[in-house]
Design a protein around this nucleic acid. Structure first.
Lengths: 341, 341
DNA sequence: CTGAAAGCGCTTACAG
DNA sequence: CTGAAAGCGCTTACAG
């Protein structure tokens, strides 16, 4: 498929009987060029619909104005809201965005990172694949490119990391349950000690301690894959306990939705008998009934913030950024799966 | 932030005391080069972790191996599954993907298309913004770049278009309702005569005609924004009718979910009194209760197919592609919001 | 204020 | 089988 060639500086130079250098300068508002020349050049350029060849430009300047984004799974609801934030902010600051999926595979993640660097992106924003172990390669690649982590992060990687106030958010969620009279609060968390799961669990523990409630291993359940199905399965386990919980804090909306489905099955009243709180405020949380009380996790803002910090690193040739955490705040949204305070 | 420079052909040439040309050829498996040389070059290249500068390459070859994707909204559930398909297939065929949102704004859509072209993408996959009117600019841009439309398409643009069998899918959905005994089937559709809404409406009409059921304007409702809220609102209107429908076919899952919420409020039994069928098979459709009967719309496959056709056009310099529709099939998934057949 | 020239890293016709 | 050279479209130090 042969397509029309684009207008080049040379063509403009020829038509205006000026040099390519002058055209380039005029178009880039170089102070040296006379206003009249700038005027003439701009006029013809718009007339001819001139658009610089970004590849030639990037090739020359070692800047592509492309940001790479690597996430485990683009079609996760929450991820897609982060992507929205990334796209918006990037566009706003004059950058394009290339997106890749790691599919929660560590090797693929590194591979993607490498291609992106090879590709010449100016920087990368990444949410880590589950169970990312060997940080070594990433550390090496860090010498080649500015990197900002978001959402799924790791303290082992010395770079800017954008996260929500995981611990405090979980604390608030559990505190809310306690304040509405719940005394035996179960938690459904991830088996893997991911940053998010760990912090949320810490918040849960701190809330119980603060209110002098016992921490009982029997109602602390974990799962590899924190899905609706597993939320349901673990809730069934909770229901089989002699001493049942009166509330469930699930560290994701999906697990919470699974919990609600299980409680429904056993005709247990929500929130009277058992209250449920989730985490994310995904669209799903308003569709399930009763509507889910959950932590609003502003994906959009996380994405925007990550872009802001990355571009800042790209554009300011300051000393290397080391470990730095940026925290975005969250709110608890109380719906029908728990009592109003 | 200064980052390490990458290894170049020149460095390899120097170390091996060969010319840059030879290195380039060896790395590209040019038949002229002796096997021993190829061997030596490859060895050093991997040793040095050589990666070609894609910008220099693209600049030289006028090929970037980047595909541009323009969609109205990345954080729509369905869109994100299409994106997943696009990313997978593109990666599989050795292409990178740049994603942009048109935000359903026609001007922005054209603007994005222009930047992508300027950017040097090899081709573009686009889902049209709502109410895309002035096709003129798009037609002009078509001369510069291969374009494939997907999901939201238009017969006015002469290019490859990837869609599902909208009409047949709607026909099947309505036929299912008829076969389970429903006789007065309402439809909730879009006001705008978009390709999708139009085709689905045609399928609805054909089903009623086929089974000799009357088409009654009173139960044909439209809305600008086919959301949960509006699904609920329009269902309230249906419930205020003297002669109520016994089934509702909503052309999106969201509208169907709104319908279910409205029916719930009035304690109407689903599907006994009124059955509901949606369209998309989004995750939401399994979370609402009763679980929604809906058309499974394979976003993943649509995305993949679009990429396949686009890359085919990019790589084969055949005569210009004119209008051509590729249809991906769908299935009706029967859940609890309608009777089993 | 303007131009000639080098060079970014690569590919490829041309020559040998 | 290998190399010297041109050129893709742009920017920028250097010269005037």
């Amino acid at each position: 498929m042969t397509k029309k060639r684009n207008v080049t500086l040379k063509e403009i130079a020829l038509k205006l009987d000026l040099s390519i250098s002058t055209i380039s300068r005029a178009l880039n508002n170089h102070p040296d060029i006379s206003p009249e020349t700038v005027e003439r050049v701009n006029k013809l350029a718009t007339e001819l619909n001139y658009a610089p060849n970004i590849f030639a430009k990037g090739f020359r300047t070692h800047r592509t104005h492309i940001i790479g984004v690597i996430v485990p799974n683009v079609s996760h609801l929450y991820t897609s809201t982060m992507l929205k934030g990334v796209l918006d902010q990037a566009e706003h600051l004059g950058y394009r965005v290339i997106i890749s999926e790691s599919k929660n595979n560590e090797n693929k993640q590194v591979e993607m990172l490498q291609t992106m660097i090879q590709f010449g992106v100016d920087g990368v924003i990444m949410s880590l694949a589950k169970k990312t172990q060997s940080i070594d390669t990433i550390l090496q690649l860090l010498e080649h490119i500015p990197l900002v982590l978001f959402d799924k992060v790791s303290p082992k990687i010395p770079c800017t990391q954008v996260v929500i106030n995981e611990e405090a958010a979980a604390f608030n969620a559990v505190e809310h349950l306690i304040e509405t009279g719940k005394k035996r609060i179960a938690i459904i968390k991830e088996t893997e000690n991911s940053f998010n799961s760990k912090k949320r669990f810490e918040g849960y523990q701190r809330a119980l301690k603060t209110y002098n409630l016992p921490i009982d291993e029997k109602v602390i359940l974990s799962t590899e894959d924190i899905s609706i199905t597993n939320g349901r399965r673990l809730t069934n386990i909770l229901l089989s306990l002699k001493n049942k919980p009166d509330a469930i804090f699930a560290i994701t909306d999906n697990a919470a939705i699974g919990a609600i489905k299980a409680l429904h099955k056993f005709k247990i009243k929500i929130p009277e008998e058992i209250a449920v709180v989730g985490f994310s405020n995904s669209i799903n949380s308003t569709i399930v009934s009763p509507a889910l009380t959950t932590v609003d996790q502003p994906g959009n803002k996380i994405g925007k913030t990550a872009v802001k910090y990355l571009i800042n690193e790209i554009e300011n040739s300051k000393p290397e950024v080391l470990f730095k955490t940026i925290t975005v705040n969250t709110n608890l949204i109380v719906r029908d799966s728990s009592f109003k305070a």
